[in-house]
Every structure is written in structure tokens, then in C-alpha cells.
């Protein structure tokens, strides 16, 4: 093995890393925003409101992310209607196609995490809100959502790492993210093992940084709890 290629191409790997980070941050933020209403609809007592998010979550959690990316990128562009619509300037860019696929995907998982967290809040707290005369909106804003945020943190940190790992799939639709850059470099140097290992090391460093950040935030957010931890359903 010859690791001098890694040194030579390291700046380009870093370029790819920057693209990967943009993909992850944008998808996580957008996905989180969409996830909240989905989670709230999912726990609605009304059957037909509940059934939409159910189908949405079912589809995005039940199919591979790779299929979802290809559906957005190659599937949608097959239709003239799409190509002539106002959406085309966005859909023609692989970067935005990846963002769309990742956002939809992560929002389905995040919605389930939110739902688990909201449902994990002891019923006593809900009752207490009612007793002091809070409206539903007040109850969610002041008590349930902040509480859920604390409960949600470990699972949410996990989801961000999964998104980071999933972002490698962007390389399949011409995006030069970390993995895409690695594959492009290998196309010149024919040294798959060295370059892939280097890329792997960069992913590891990023996920460790994410883990460390979440440990800190968790400590702060849940500091009033002492050392109590509440279990949130695993993602599946």
C-alpha cells in the first residue's frame, strides 16, 4: 500500500468533506422542520389525520435511501411535465435532488423520534398543564416540546450520524461529496484501498465530533434531571 497518494490528494478530500457537511447540515435542519408537524399529526386522535404521516413514514423508512435518491434524480427528470415546470431549476441540480431525498428521508425518522419523545412525557405533566388552565398551544410550547427536546437528544444525535453516513450516497448522482471525491480520485490513481481508508478516517472524525457535541448539549439540557435518562424508541 502506498499512502503518498493520500497526502497528495488530501486537499481534494477536504473539498469533498465540505460538500458532505453542507448536505448533512441542510438536510438535518430542513428535515427537522418538516418532522415536527408530521410527528404532531401522527399522534392526532383523528384517524384520517393520523393516516397520512403513517403512510409517509412507512414509505421513507421502508425503502432504501439509494432508491429514494434515484427516484428523485433520474425518476422525476424522466417526465416532460417536471422538466417544464417551475421546479426544474431546482430539480436539475444534483445537489438539490440530494437535499430533497435526504430531507424527506430524515424527516420520516425524526418524526418518529419526536413522537416517541412526546409520548414519553409522563401523563401527569399533561394533566398538570390542564389543571393550571393552559391552552393546548401553550401546553405544547411551554411544556411538552421543551421536555421532548431534552428526551430526544440522544436519538437525534444518532440520526445526525446516520444522515452523515447516508450522505455518502450523494456520490451516486454525480455529487463530489467526500465519497464522490474519493471515487473520482481513485479513477485517476487506481488506489481504492488507500483513498477509501482515508475517506473513512475523515467520516470517523466527523462523527466523533458530533458525538462529543451532543454529549455536551445533553448534559446542559438535562442537567435539572440529575442522572435520570429516559428511553426513546430505537430507530428502525
Amino acid at each position: 500500500m502506498d499512502f503518498s497518494v493520500v497526502v497528495e490528494y488530501f486537499p481534494r478530500l477536504l473539498e469533498g468533506t465540505w460538500v458532505s457537511l453542507q448536505l448533512v447540515v441542510l438536510s438535518i435542519v430542513l428535515g427537522g422542520i418538516i418532522a415536527l408537524p408530521i410527528a404532531l399529526a401522527r399522534i392526532s386522535p383523528v384517524l384520517w389525520i393520523r393516516s397520512f404521516p403513517f403512510a409517509y413514514i412507512f414509505f421513507f423508512r421502508g425503502t432504501p435511501l439509494l432508491v429514494q435518491i434515484f427516484l428523485v434524480y433520474y425518476g422525476a427528470s424522466q417526465f416532460e411535465v417536471v422538466r417544464e415546470s417551475f421546479l426544474w431549476p431546482i430539480l436539475r441540480e444534483p445537489f438539490w435532488c440530494a437535499i430533497i431525498a435526504f430531507t424527506l428521508n430524515t424527516s420520516a425518522y425524526t418524526a418518529e423520534i419526536f413522537r416517541g419523545a412526546i409520548q414519553a412525557i409522563p401523563p401527569g405533566e399533561v394533566e398538570a398543564c390542564k389543571v393550571v388552565g393552559m391552552s393546548k398551544a401553550q401546553m405544547y410550547r411551554r411544556v411538552l416540546l421543551p421536555r421532548a427536546f431534552g428526551i430526544v437528544l440522544p436519538a437525534y444525535g444518532n440520526e445526525i450520524i446516520l444522515m452523515l453516513k447516508g450522505s455518502a450516497l450523494a456520490s451516486t448522482i454525480t455529487i463530489l461529496d467526500l465519497t464522490g471525491m474519493a471515487r473520482t480520485i481513485i479513477a485517476r490513481t487506481y488506489t481504492p484501498i488507500e483513498i477509501f481508508l482515508a475517506a473513512g478516517a475523515i467520516y470517523l472524525v466527523i462523527s466523533m465530533v458530533i458525538i462529543a457535541i451532543f454529549r455536551q448539549v445533553e448534559k446542559r439540557q438535562n442537567r435539572y434531571l440529575g442522572s435520570v435518562s429516559i428511553k426513546v424508541p430505537d430507530k428502525g
Partner: peptide, 22 residues
């Protein structure tokens, strides 16, 4: 567990496919 959980699955597949034989 730390290594595997931090690596993208796509990369794990590629590394094993190209690297394991060697």
C-alpha cells in the same frame, strides 16, 4: 463498534470489496 458505526455503510462495502482480498 466505534469504527463500524462511524463509517458510512457504502464505504464499508467498498473497502471490504476492494481491500479484503489483499
Amino acid at each position: 463498534t466505534t469504527l463500524i458505526r462511524g463509517l458510512p455503510e457504502l464505504l464499508t462495502v467498498l473497502i471490504i470489496y476492494f481491500g479484503a482480498t489483499t
